[in-house]
């Protein structure tokens, strides 16, 4: 029996305590152990961006981190972005701008967009494109994703939304 290690982590505001094998990837921990399957797994070697989650507020690739490493940390996944039944402005903008088709890349895109807008609330188109450059989308051609993030930035600036999950992580 392989050795197991304790992990205590706050994901989307909820405390979890589990024990994992050393080799357990954070992406698999989220999906299999916590049953948070919103985090998608594409390439498993850091090329596609689908598994992006926020670790203590910073975007990271959850397939390139071990579950045991996040002991004591706070994680945000796509499940924690909406405010209960009310979609986050970024999610709404993705919906309204047809920024997703198959939806596979969407959770990662949304989390990187969230991290980007937190750091830079009024990004230029160029800055948005750099911000999502680690994500591959095979459906949209990116144009509507960029549009959605622009729309979300404007909306968030309008309502100067300072509450919500972004500030909690």
């Amino acid at each position: 029996m392989a050795k197991r290690y304790p992990v205590r982590v706050k994901v989307n505001g909820v405390e979890y305590e589990r024990s994992v094998e050393g080799r357990r990837l954070l992406s698999d921990f989220l999906r299999e152990d916590l049953e948070l399957t919103g985090t998608h797994v594409g390439c498993e070697h850091g090329a596609c961006g689908a598994c992006t989650a926020l670790l203590n507020g910073q975007s990271i690739l959850s397939c390139l981190a071990l579950a045991v490493q996040v002991d004591g940390a706070e994680i945000l996944t796509v499940e924690g972005v909406a405010d209960e039944a009310k979609l986050h402005p970024i999610q709404e903008a993705f919906w309204e701008n047809h920024a997703l088709q198959c939806g596979f890349c969407t959770p990662g895109m949304i989390l990187s967009a969230l991290a980007l807008l937190k750091e830079n609330p009024r990004p230029t188109e160029e800055e948005i494109r750099v911000g999502i450059s680690g994500h591959i989308c095979r459906c949209t051609g990116y144009v509507n994703i960029v549009k959605a993030i622009q729309t979300a930035a404007e909306k968030m600036a309008e309502t100067s939304q300072t509450k919500g999950t972004v500030q909690n992580v």
């Binding site: 961006g49 670790l55 910073q58 975007s59 690739l61 390139l64 981190a65 991290a115 750099v130 680690g134």
Partner: peptide, 9 residues
């Protein structure tokens, strides 16, 4: 170097 997600780590 990589993308933002990679540079964060």
């Amino acid at each position: 170097v990589g993308h933002i997600e990679v540079r964060n780590r």
